[in-house]
Design a protein around this nucleic acid. Structure first.
Lengths: 361, 361
DNA sequence: TTGAAAGCGTTACCAT
DNA sequence: ATGGTAACGCTTTCAA
C-alpha cells in the first residue's frame, strides 16, 4: 500500500498542535481560528498531505464506494451502462468497484459477498441470467445494504429498479415488422426467468395478437446465455431449426444485444440473405449498426442514462435523500426504434407470395 | 456502510476468549489449539461473521486493491483489456477500482490522486492521449507506488509496459495494402505524443520506404481524440481533404479502434465506396468487423491478454515476486492481421488506371 | 479556540 | 496455547 506518507499526527507534531486541531482545521471546522486554519492548510499543501481514506472510512462507517455487479464488462451495452454509473458516482464523490458474474449465479453470490466484505455503501446489480431466485439479494437487503437493480431484474424482488419499458419495446419492434408486411415473425430470446426476457417475449406476443396473427410456438426460440460460444451455437441451431420448418419465418426479432450482434453473421453464414430471406430487428446499442451489411434495425436503449439514474437512485438511498427503497421507486425509460434496411418493407409482390405460401401450409 | 455486523470482539465475548485468540484461530495460526480453532470457526460461520476488510487493510498497510486508469470504459477494445485485468486480479485475490481519464490530462491526474488516496497497492494505467509529460506518474512511482503501463505508453517513462508491437503491426498492415496493389496509401492517426501512435506512424512509413514508395506528407492525417464528436469531425475533414487532393489516395490505414469504426460510416456517407474508391484497413477488435459492409480488414490486438499480462506483472511487483519495475520488464505482444474485403486486391485493370492517373498528376 | 482521549476492527508483539 | 495491549490514521466527544 502506497499511502505511507504524512499523517495527521505528523502534521500536528510539525506545527506543534494536536491532531484533533489539525483534523478540524483541515475540515474547516467552526471550532478553529482562521489563522490556525491557514497555517495548517498551507503546511498540509506544502508537504503534500493526503488523508488516508481507509482510516476515515473505518472511523466514519462509510466507504463512499459502491459495488457494481454486471454479467460481463466486455459488452457494448454494459460498458455504456457502466459509463453512466461512473459519471453519476464521480459527480457525487463516490467510487465504484465492479465485479462480473459471468452469468453464473454462484459467481454472482461470490461477487456480492466480496463487495460486502469490502464495506460498500450500496449495491448496483444487474443479475445473472442464471439467477434462480433472489434470496441472496434479500439477505443483504435485510442486512441493511441499499440495493438498486438496473437493466435486468426479477419481479419477485421488492427493490428499486431502473430499466426500459421492455414490453413496449418489443411490442413496437414487432409492430414495425408487421407494418412492413411481415407476418411470419420468429423471436430469439434468452433462456432466463428474468423479467427483462419475460416481458420482451410478452411484448412480441401481444403485438401479434393485436394484429390477429396467431402465435406459432415453433417461432419462439430460447437461446442459451451461459457463454459466448454456447450462445453462438444455440443461435445457429435456432436459426437452422426455424428455417427448416415447413413454414419458415420471414422475419426475426433478436431480443438482446448479444443475440442481435451474433445472429447477423450466423444468418449470413448459413446462406440466408437479410432481409430477403429473413428480416431482422435487434436490441443493440452498437454504433456500428448503421455500417453493418445490411444496416441493422435496432431497438436502442438509453444505456448511459439507465446507469446514471440507477446510480443516482442508489446514492439518494445511501445519503438518505430518498427513503423509498421499494420497487415502487422503479423507473422505466423509453427506447428508440431505429428502422434500417434489415427490416425494410416487404415489396408487395413478395408480400403476396408470402401470404400464398402461408395459405398452402 | 453495511458491514455493521459481528466483530472479532463480539465473537471473543461470546466464546469467552480474547480477540487475539479469535483472530489467530480464524487465520489458522499455529499458536492456537485444534479444538479452539474448531470452536471459533464453527461459531463464526454460524453467526455469519465477516471480517472488516477496511480495518484489515488499515492495519496491514495493504488494501489488495489496484487502481486502473483508462481513457474511457465505453469502448470495445478497452472493455476487453479490462476483462483481462479483472480476470488476473480475481485469480489473485485483488479487486480493481476503475477510473476514466476521458483523454484529459488533468482528469488523469485527478484519477490517480483519488486512487492513491484510496490506498491502492498499485496502478495500471493507459495514459490519456492528451498527456504532455509523465511527471505525475514519476512522482507517484517515486512515492513507492508500483505502476505498470498497458496498451498506451510513453517512452520517457522507465516503467514496465505491456502493449503490442505497434511498429510491426502497422508495417504489416501497410505491406498488406501494398501487396494487394495499392500504392497511394493514406494514414489516419491520433494526435498524440504517445509511443503507440508514433510507432504506428513509423511502421507505415517504414513499409512504404521498404517498397520504394515515396512518403507523401499530405497523406498523413492526425485526428483529434479529445471526444467522440470531435473525432468524427476530424475524421470527416481528413477524408474530405484526402479525397480533394489532386492525387487522392486509394487506400487508408486507420490506426486505432475508434478511428477505424468511425471512419467506415464517414467514408460511405461522403459517397465513397470501400474498397473501390478507398480501401480500408483498421485497428479494431470488434466482433462485428466481419459483418460490416464491406467486411473490414483489421489488425486484431490480443486485448484480454494484454490486460491479463499487465495485471499479473503489477501483482508480481506488489507481491514482491518480481523486482524488475523498470521498462526492461516491457512485453510486446504480436497482433493478427485479418484480411477481408475492405482491402481486397486491386483488379489489375483498375491498378493500371491508378498508375495512369498518378502519372497525370 | 484548542487538546486529550476513546474508539472504528483488525493484527502483532510480548507476556503469561 | 492464550490473552493484554498497542497500533494503523482518522473523527469525535468532552474538557480545559
Amino acid at each position: 500500500m502506497a499511502n505511507q506518507n504524512m499523517t495527521l499526527r505528523d502534521l500536528a507534531k510539525a506545527l506543534k498542535l494536536s491532531t484533533s486541531t489539525v483534523s478540524k482545521a483541515l475540515r474547516d471546522s467552526y471550532e478553529i481560528g482562521e489563522k490556525t486554519k491557514k497555517k495548517v492548510t498551507n503546511y498540509a499543501k506544502k508537504v503534500g498531505y493526503r488523508p488516508n481514506t481507509l482510516a476515515k472510512s473505518l472511523k466514519e462507517g462509510k466507504s463512499r464506494t459502491i459495488g457494481v455487479v454486471i454479467c460481463s464488462i466486455d459488452n457494448t451495452f454494459v460498458s455504456q451502462l457502466l459509463n453512466g454509473i461512473d459519471y453519476a458516482c464521480n459527480n457525487r464523490g463516490y467510487s465504484i468497484m465492479i465485479m462480473q458474474s459471468k452469468e453464473s449465479h454462484s459467481q454472482e453470490i461470490k461477487c456480492i459477498d466480496l463487495l460486502y466484505g469490502r464495506s460498500i455503501d450500496g449495491l448496483l446489480i444487474s443479475p445473472a441470467c442464471e439467477t434462480p431466485d433472489s434470496d441472496h439479494l434479500t439477505k443483504y437487503h435485510n442486512l441493511g445494504l441499499p440495493i438498486v437493480l438496473f437493466d435486468r431484474y426479477s419481479d419477485e424482488l421488492d427493490l428499486p429498479k431502473v430499466s426500459i419499458n421492455n414490453l413496449e419495446a418489443s411490442y413496437d419492434a414487432t409492430c414495425h415488422l408487421i407494418g412492413n408486411g411481415y407476418t411470419k415473425i420468429a423471436i430469439l430470446h434468452s433462456n432466463t426467468r428474468l423479467n427483462i426476457n419475460i416481458q420482451r417475449l410478452q411484448g412480441y406476443k401481444n403485438a401479434l395478437e393485436a394484429h390477429h396473427i396467431p402465435i406459432n410456438e415453433a417461432y419462439v426460440k430460447p437461446c442459451d446465455f451461459h457463454d459466448t460460444e454456447i450462445l453462438k451455437q444455440s443461435i445457429e441451431t435456432a436459426v437452422k431449426e426455424l428455417m427448416a420448418l415447413s413454414d419458415p419465418p420471414t422475419a426475426l426479432l433478436a431480443t438482446s444485444d448479444q443475440i442481435s450482434t451474433q445472429s447477423i453473421s450466423i444468418i449470413k453464414n448459413l446462406g440466408y440473405r437479410i432481409p430477403q430471406d429473413l428480416a431482422l430487428v435487434g436490441f443493440t446499442n452498437t454504433t456500428l449498426a448503421a455500417s453493418l451489411a445490411p444496416p441493422l434495425s435496432t431497438v436502442y436503449q438509453p444505456a448511459k442514462e439507465i446507469g446514471e439514474i440507477a446510480a443516482n437512485k442508489l446514492l439518494d438511498l445511501i445519503d438518505g435523500v430518498d427513503r423509498d427503497d421499494k420497487s415502487s421507486a422503479t423507473i422505466y425509460l423509453t427506447t428508440n426504434l431505429i428502422e434500417r434496411a434489415s427490416s425494410k418493407p416487404l415489396p408487395s409482390a413478395s408480400e403476396r407470395i408470402t401470404f400464398k405460401s402461408q395459405n398452402n401450409a
